[in-house]
Simulated assay, not measured.
Amino acid sequence: MREAAQQLINKGIPLQRKAERPAMRDINSPPPSAAPHAPEPAPAPLQTPNPATHPAEYAQDILNRMGISLDFQANLDRAIDFGSLLHPTPAQPITEGAQFISGSYTNHAGTRNYKLYIPANYHGQAMPLLVMLHGCTQNPDDFAAGTQMNQLAEEMGCFVVYPEQNAQANHSKCWNWFSAIDQQRGQGEPSILAGIAQQIIEEYPVNERQVYVAGLSAGGAMAVIVGTLYPELFAAVGVHSGLPFASAQDLPSALTAMKRGVHSAAKAGNPAQPIIVFHGDSDTTVHPVNGEQVMAQRLRHHRGARPSVQSGAVPDGHSYTQTTHLKPDGTPLGEHWVVHGAGHAWSGGSASGSYTDAKGPDASREMLRFFRTVS
Rank of each mutant, 00 (worst) to 15 (best):
R2H: 12
Q7V: 15
L8M: 15
N10E: 10
N10H: 07
N10Q: 11
G12A: 00
I13M: 14
L15E: 15
Q16Y: 12
R17D: 11
A19D: 07
E20F: 14
E20A: 15
M24F: 12
N28W: 13
P30G: 03
S33E: 13
A34P: 08
A34M: 15
A35E: 07
P41N: 11
A42N: 07
P43A: 09
P45R: 03
L46S: 14
P51R: 14
Y58R: 06
Q60S: 13
R65N: 09
I80E: 07
L86H: 04
L86K: 08
Q92N: 08
Q92H: 04
E96G: 01
A98E: 03
S104N: 06
T106N: 13
N107T: 10
A109F: 08
G110D: 02
T111D: 12
K115G: 05
L116Q: 05
I118Y: 06
P119A: 07
H123T: 14
G124E: 13
Q125D: 14
Q125H: 11
A126W: 05
A126E: 13
M127E: 02
M127A: 07
P128W: 09
L130I: 11
L130Q: 10
L130T: 04
L133I: 03
D141E: 11
A144R: 03
M149R: 00
L152E: 11
E155L: 09
M156E: 01
F159M: 04
V160D: 02
Q165F: 00
N170Y: 04
S172T: 14
S172Y: 01
K173L: 12
F178I: 00
I181N: 11
Q183G: 09
Q184E: 12
G186C: 05
P190C: 11
S191N: 06
Q198N: 12
I200V: 15
I201F: 07
E208T: 15
R209Y: 07
V211Q: 01
V224D: 01
V226Q: 05
V226W: 04
G227H: 02
T228F: 04
L229C: 05
A235C: 15
A235L: 14
A236Q: 01
V239M: 01
V239S: 00
S241I: 09
L243W: 00
F245H: 04
F245M: 11
A246G: 10
A248K: 01
A248R: 00
L251G: 09
A254N: 09
M258E: 04
H263P: 12
S264Q: 13
A266Q: 10
P271T: 10
P271R: 03
F278T: 10
T284A: 15
T285N: 03
H287W: 02
Q293P: 00
M295C: 07
A296T: 03
V309F: 14
Q310A: 13
Q310K: 13
S311Q: 15
G312E: 11
A313D: 09
P315G: 08
G317I: 01
S319N: 11
Y320A: 09
K327Q: 15
D329E: 09
T331N: 07
P332H: 06
P332N: 04
V338P: 05
G341P: 01
A342R: 04
A342W: 02
A345Q: 02
A345K: 00
S354L: 05
S354C: 09
K359T: 03
G360E: 11
D362M: 02
L368W: 13
R372Q: 12
V374W: 00
S375V: 02
